[in-house]
């Protein structure tokens, strides 16, 4: 999918909560011997996917100086909406002081709802229906106590103010595509508190099949190869998967390093690739090309190519993700279950 009129990232921002819990701390409670990552973020008792989205949006708007009265759409990708029925976007519109003449909806596609939102906003801008739009990926994802997911399900998000390239953008979207199939690797039924998954089935037929198919198709369609990219970001449910999929597709560790955050912050679900993209933009230089491939269970993968422009130097996120990584505080399991509301289950 290549927009007929140029579309790009006008401004961006990422946010992660202050608190992390180490995998060893969870393992000591549930008696597990090996763990998938070092640590993961979790939301404070007063945070949810909406407040995380707010923080990321505010950084994106303030760092870029985007005109709040010209934002024509706000789409939030999340699988941990505060309400099952009541949109998060309307709260953001009033909290951020955006124009109320705005398209607003919550997107859900497991971990790839945020990239789906970028594609939807891009289309509206490329068609000329709106001039600016916001796409957000945000989650405070759930893991049943003791379940494999509890070691990785984390919290964080990123927001992207998109606009016509002619307004001046920090990175242009060259093209994207999407590949989906009915694959039951992971799900959460309506009204259920915690998701379920099919263990090792989440790997080869789900994560790897969809990302590899999506990226290979993207390369064929637009004539790219891994060498064309300075950086790449893959969905990161743990430390191992993104590194292995990068290797399988022919990317090096240097290309994925700036956007690989899961070992420390865990899997931020809808936020995962987008927080990785924000962290990569924080360090990228004009002319850099970035590949991004998301994955959402159920299942699908979106692949994108971005090219960074000269404007990156003046519109980098303030504060950058690094500032939030530097303020992390480690908490124990008891604080974690309290803040996550698991004591009231």
């Amino acid at each position: 999918m290549k927009p007929v009129n140029g579309v790009g990232i006008f401004g961006y921002g990422a946010y992660i909560p202050r608190y992390i819990i180490e995998n060893s701390s969870i393992a000591s409670v549930w008696g597990k011997l090996s763990t998938p990552i070092k640590s993961k973020t979790f939301p404070s008792y007063d945070e949810d996917s909406l407040t995380i989205a707010y923080e990321a949006c505010r950084i994106a708007l303030e760092s870029s100086g985007a005109p709040r009265d010209k934002i024509g759409a706000i789409y939030i990708g999340s699988e941990s909406k505060p309400y099952a029925v009541k949109p998060s976007g309307t709260v953001l519109v009033d909290a951020l002081g955006l124009s109320r003449n705005i398209l607003s909806a919550d997107f859900e596609f497991a971990c790839k709802a945020g990239t789906e939102a970028i594609q939807a906003v891009s289309g509206l801008i490329a068609s000329g229906m709106i001039e600016f739009g916001i796409a957000i990926g945000t989650d405070t994802s759930q893991g049943r106590p003791g379940d494999e997911l509890e070691y990785t399900a984390a919290a964080g998000g990123a927001a992207f103010v998109l606009s016509r390239a002619s307004n001046g953008v920090v990175a242009e979207i060259e093209a994207s595509n999407s590949y989906v199939s009915d694959t039951p690797d992971f799900w959460r039924r309506s009204g259920e508190k915690y998701p379920r998954h099919l263990y090792r089935f989440t790997g080869e037929p789900a994560y790897f099949h969809h990302i590899i198919t999506s990226v290979k198709h993207f390369f064929e369609e637009y004539g790219y190869s891994p060498r064309d990219f300075d950086y790449a970001i893959f969905h990161q449910p743990n430390s191992k998967f993104p590194q292995r999929v990068a290797k399988m597709l022919g990317f090096t560790m240097d290309q994925i390093r700036p956007g690989l955050l899961s070992p420390i912050i865990g899997n931020t679900y809808s936020g995962a690739t987008l927080v990785g993209l924000a962290a990569t933009l924080d360090v990228s230089k004009p002319g850099d090309r970035i590949l991004l491939a998301s994955f959402g269970s159920g299942a699908g993968s979106d692949a994108f190519s971005f090219v960074v422009t000269d404007l990156i130097e003046e519109r980098r996120a303030k504060p950058p993700l690094k500032s939030f990584l530097e303020r992390l505080v480690t908490k124990d399991y008891s604080t974690y279950v309290r803040y996550r509301g698991k004591l009231w289950v």
Binding site: S44, D46, E47, T51, E55, R58, A95
Partner: peptide
Amino acid sequence: TFRKLYTYGD
């Protein structure tokens, strides 16, 4: 910053 203040139960 913008946060949840309180809720009226679940």
